[in-house]
Design a protein around this nucleic acid. Structure first.
Lengths: 150, 150
DNA sequence: TTGCTCCTCACGTCACGTGAGGTGGC
DNA sequence: TTGCTCCTCACGTCACGTGAGGTGGC
């Protein structure tokens, strides 16, 4: 292991032109695989968030490196998704976001409107569940044993 | 109006080769515009359901005509959507559906599984709403007036 | 040479929305 | 000629999933 570490240092002191990837944990940054595991998201999702301008990891050659600020942004993105905001909305909120703010939605209006949107969705869900339960019950009454529901 | 109706009858008795569209209501069938208005769906949605094999209206030339059976199928499709089934699921349920059955899901298993899916979604919605309310409340305590929530 | 991790296209999914450009009968 | 209704492509939206084909270091 000791000779391996030394070999790594040697390689670092003579960085090749096309591959300047820091070794894992060397500068506290994470590879795409590491941040994916850490936050429970797919590699594809991370690349997609970057393509949409939500994340902007550093590049070392072609490889991505996510630092602490990137991790914080990802946490905010995932909070936004949990709260059912679209990525377009998350993008706008991140643009208006300032350090020290630990939650994504920054205005009362955003909260109120999202709450009423989600409450409407919940009512639709409640109706669907109630209708499914009625149908389920009807399957017993219309079946061979008409007294089963009694 | 009388002469209009007669003209329509004349036209019917000498149907042109490329346009055999029956006049509105003449055979009880509906044009795409009529069924769209009747059921509150878009023309695009109706064409999409047809492309997916969920509807199969008759053709008179290029125009579509929806008869009573098509209307019944559309009602079932819309019920399936209200119950949050995917169109793929609706397609399979329609294939297994037999006349006299007035609801779409035909097995208890389908009902039970859909109910548990929707209940899971409702729990996620509940959590999101609760989190948004906490954030909203926090905006008052962390703002200029710290006693506002008391 | 094999295995692992990373990369970039690029098409697929889901349920349509939205033009574009054309037809047909009053 | 205008207005209405219908038509067929075909690309756009949303948030990724899923290969395909290639690279780089151990």
């Amino acid at each position: 292991m000791g000779s391996d570490a030394r070999a790594s240092l040697v390689a670092k002191s003579a960085w090749p032109k096309l591959c300047q990837t820091p070794a894992a944990g060397e500068d506290g940054s994470l590879s795409i695989g590491e941040i994916a595991r850490e936050y429970g998201v797919s590699l594809r999702a991370l690349r997609f968030y970057q393509a949409k301008g939500l994340l902007a990891p550093r590049r070392y050659g072609r490889a991505r490196r996510f630092n602490t600020a990137d991790c914080e942004r990802l946490a905010l993105i995932l909070q936004g998704k949990r709260l059912c905001f679209t990525l377009t909305e998350v993008h706008a909120m991140l643009a208006a976001w300032h350090p020290g703010n630990c939650t994504l939605p920054s205005s009362r209006k955003q909260c109120v409107e999202q709450i009423s949107l989600l409450e409407r969705q919940r009512r639709d869900l409640d109706r669907a569940i109630a209708e499914l339960r009625r149908i389920y019950s009807g399957m017993f009454t219309s079946a061979a044993r008409p007294t089963e529901t009694a």
